[in-house]
Design a protein around this nucleic acid. Structure first.
Lengths: 354, 354
DNA sequence: GTGAAAGCGCTAACAT
DNA sequence: ATGTTAGCGCTTTCAC
């Protein structure tokens, strides 16, 4: 227990070799006799030598760390996203530096800039980030992958969720199940996902139920806004036959509003959400929804980034899209049966590409 | 767009000052004329200069980053924990490096050692970590806080959840509500939380229902194991009057088993879980459970660590405990009413310290 | 107020 | 096979 950690010099001195040899041994570069290796390893172990990554990074220019810039760490979406990223990262020996909760462009910029010298590449999911932002704040030559972003034509790959196709598939299912008057509850106006989902609803209605009125009520992704929207919808004449909420929490809010009003789901009205959060399976009746494999999104993003980290990689930047599956449970009128224990969501159909 | 990022030297040259002055200006150390400051800032902005943290860390010995070593990133527990840590960290200008999913001591050791030079301190939650492990793998003088750990008497502070008190409070409530025969479903045998919860159950039964038999069935924290345990419990004679599962997912498994068997909850049997996961409020009937403020645990851990980072801090290492609250919902017999929309969990009582 | 210079701990030429 | 040495980009004495 001395006061300072052992450095490579200490190891070299104690082992009577040069620092270069210590470095070679510990990095497995070869060109060292087995005896020297043995001595070095022994001394390193005895001194409990742990290389300093800051020094190593400074000279190699590599940190083996990737940065994830996210707007928030709240909820299932982000925990799943981080999990997917983390899994893929550690499979590649990469560490994960997370940065979240940015309340504005300046905040996001600071976060991105603070990553300089800490990471080899970045995964960015932020409404504040566009091409100009990246130009301004991203260190030169630092690879980055954008998630869930409207940005295109930059030198950075973008990975999106196919919200539009997911919404179309769900509306189509609802209409084909006999519900012409499908109402929609929107998400926050500035949210990219929410916008795409609404577009999907509109497109699908135009195609599959061209004669039905478009009924759109505002929501903000909270359970409470769903509850309010449901009450508003119940007052409409004629009452919608189905309600499609832009996310599951709002759908759950609807569920409680309907229950309170004595409206049976799916008997009196069909209900569907979007996201397939864990809760969706556990409410009564279980909620039909659009499943997005968020962990896969994270994994794919990291894999894309890892490819970029390899300097020989010449994959051009592109906008890729991750498909969604609709999951039909009882809330939209699937034949109700005994709710049984542990079941996996059933993937009913795969939305066609748009 | 040249090929390389600007360094402090580039800024110095362009501004016709020394690197020392640039450093002083950009770090706000004063001792520089306003004119010089202005020039330096302008040039730095023009060259889009972003300081390299690796170099800075190397010389200052500070990274302004803390490392979180966790066993897994799956589920609400860890997402809440990370959220709490992250919130507290960014409030202090600290970055967060996460490392997870370690399948063994060696893996955990590698994770901890890999943090050297990357972090100023660590938050560790791992069943593999004990005093010897820390001695072996933690760089000298690197502050660390242990979470949810049986370790004591080390030079590291420990922060635990008061699982035992939480379990006692719940059993007490169940007994006082008229259920003498309270059965318990355990968690994984090696899990520290699970052990403490079982101890609490045993202690509470001895105290509040000394004449009732101890009925304990094995589970492993999964919904499926809860389902199986419930079926086993239904076969017992006499049938338990209440079931207390060591976590919510198992309680939910029970719920489905009971529903399937036509057993009414709470009419025929009372049910309670532990954790207060989000789902608990949404199942039918809503699940009574023991609430743990995981985000607070993360926040407190980080605050403790932040205090340690300050070299003047002389707070002695100690074992601190975070209390739990029981949340009584309908599953254990609260007067059933109309299930209304958005409600916050009601904290019914605070368990007495053990 | 400003600059020159000495490293922080490590890797990677380049010698030997 | 091994050692010497020059930095990586920055902060921080210590002179001036």
């Amino acid at each position: 227990m001395t006061t300072k950690n052992a450095t490579i010099k200490d190891v070299a001195r104690e082992a009577n070799v040069s620092v270069a040899s210590v470095s070679r041994v510990l990095n497995g570069l070869g060109g060292v006799t087995p005896e020297t290796q043995k001595i070095v390893r022994e001394v390193a172990a005895r001194l409990n030598y742990i290389p300093d990554n800051a020094a190593r990074s400074l000279i190699t220019g590599r940190t083996h760390t990737i940065g994830a810039v996210l707007p928030d760490l709240y909820g299932e979406f982000f925990s799943e996203l981080i999990r997917g990223i983390d899994l893929a990262a550690r499979a590649r020996g990469l560490h994960l530096l997370v940065s979240s909760s940015h309340d504005g462009v300046a905040d996001a910029a600071a976060a991105v800039r603070a990553m300089r010298g800490r990471v080899d590449g970045m995964l960015i999911l932020s409404e504040y980030v566009d091409a100009a932002f990246l130009e301004q704040n991203l260190p030169e030559k630092l690879p980055a992958v954008l998630l869930d972003s409207p940005v295109k034509n930059t030198r950075y790959p973008v990975l999106n969720i196919d919200n539009r196709a997911g919404a179309i598939a769900m509306v189509r299912h609802l209409v084909e199940a006999g519900h012409q008057r499908v109402a929609f509850i929107t998400g926050p106006k500035t949210n990219f996902d929410a916008q795409q989902r609404e577009k999907g609803y509109r497109a699908a209605m135009a195609k599959y139920a061209p004669d039905a009125p478009l009924v759109i009520v505002d929501g903000d992704f909270t359970e409470e806004s769903g509850y309010r929207a449901a009450r508003e919808l119940l007052a409409r004449k004629p009452r919608p036959q189905a309600v499609f909420a832009a996310n599951d929490m709002m759908a759950i809010g609807c569920l409680y509003a309907f229950k309170e009003a004595g409206i049976d789901v799916p008997g009196d009205i069909a209900l569907a959400g979007f996201d397939d959060i864990l809760i969706a399976r556990y409410v009564t009746p279980p909620l039909s929804t659009v499943h997005v494999s968020i962990a896969d999104l994270g994994r794919l993003a990291l894999e894309r980034l890892a490819a970029l980290l390899n300097p020989t990689d010449k994959t051009p930047a592109s906008v890729e899209t991750l498909g969604c599956d609709i999951v039909i449970r009882e809330s939209c009128g699937r034949k109700a049966g005994v709710t049984v224990a542990p079941t996996k969501p059933r993937r009913v159909s795969r939305p066609s590409p748009t």
